[in-house]
């Protein structure tokens, strides 16, 4: 992207104009997310910068919206529901997903394409359709409005992410390691947990993180499949945004942004580690 020394004036202008355009687009991408962070410290119930905030007066900022989040029973209920639902759904997705990914990466799998299409389908079908179908079907089974119903629905939505990340990790897996292990007398279980699992663990964890985020951030399906007793954090935010918009939402949003930055870092570190691990094994 460097400008050659012989560039004409027009080329120089175009070059810098391009960089400015790109800068603006990056600004468009990132600014909305960054704007809500200072706004969440607003001492007033406003959604815009008060004159006091612009003048950086200390008493124009406060933690009252954060206090509200941590004391308001509605938000606490929502938080505890999210914390109860997402990990269980993730656990189901990861356990079943990893098992199936190991199966799918074998060299002879009949109907692999069809099976793959079915397993990926929760990611393809628009959420509103999944939500509608699950609402109809789970009401027949009596699962609509129950904790189990929401967990099963979220587990189904998280599975494609686990399948994709784990099969991608397994592509680089050197099969001679399992053969060596079997040759040295280890049973299939021992081979899996002692040899294969440690090597694909980064993929499993990042798949799990994707599944966790999917469940933790999911609102459409829980709106339909859940009832008031399963009100999760995104649900509470959704209601807050639709009905009485309160600045506490911005505090919650800021907390979620911090969480996603942390998760993004973890996934990136895992990816690097996985590449390093794969580098160790030939093939």
């Amino acid at each position: 992207m460097e400008l050659p020394p012989y560039a004409t004036l027009g080329q120089k202008i175009w070059h810098y104009a391009f960089l400015v355009i790109c800068g603006l687009i990056f600004f468009f991408l990132i600014a909305p997310i960054l704007t809500i962070i200072p706004l969440s410290f607003n001492a007033q119930n406003f959604f815009t910068f008060t004159p006091g905030m612009l003048a950086f007066e200390a008493d124009a900022y406060s933690l009252r919206h954060y206090r509200d989040f941590f004391t308001n029973p509605n938000w606490q209920q929502a938080l505890s529901n999210s914390v109860r639902i997402a990990p269980v759904a993730t656990l189901i997705s990861v356990a079943l997903g990893t098992l199936a990914a190991v199966g799918l990466s074998q060299s002879h799998v009949p109907f692999r394409r069809a099976i793959m299409a079915i397993l990926i389908s929760p990611m393809i079908v628009p959420l509103i359709i999944s939500a509608a179908g699950m609402y109809f079907f789970y009401s027949r089974l009596g699962l609509q409005g129950t904790y189990i119903g929401v967990v099963l629905a979220h587990a189904a939505l998280g599975i494609p992410f686990v399948i994709i990340t784990v099969t991608a990790t397994l592509v680089g897996f050197d099969r001679s390691l399992t053969r060596a292990s079997a040759n040295l007398g280890a049973g299939p279980m021992r081979t899996f947990f002692k040899v294969q699992m440690p090597l694909i663990l980064p993929g499993v964890i990042s798949g799990g993180l994707f599944a966790f985020i999917t469940s933790f951030d999911e609102v459409v399906v829980v709106l339909f499949v859940g009832s008031a007793g399963q009100k999760t954090l995104p649900w509470q935010m959704f209601i807050g945004l639709r009905e009485q918009i309160s600045p506490t939402i911005l505090a919650v949003a800021t907390i979620l942004v911090v969480i996603s930055i942390a998760l993004l870092t973890v996934v990136e570190l895992l990816r690097r580690r996985s590449e390093r691990l794969r580098g160790m094994s030939p093939g």
Binding site: G103, P110, I118, L119, S121, M134, F137, L152, A156
Partner: peptide
């Protein structure tokens, strides 16, 4: 063996997702 490994998930998805659709 491959099918045995895949089938739990396949059944799970068929029941929790494909059947609702």
């Amino acid at each position: 063996r491959a099918l045995a490994l895949i089938s739990p998930l396949l059944i799970f998805i068929l029941v929790t997702f494909v059947a609702p659709i």
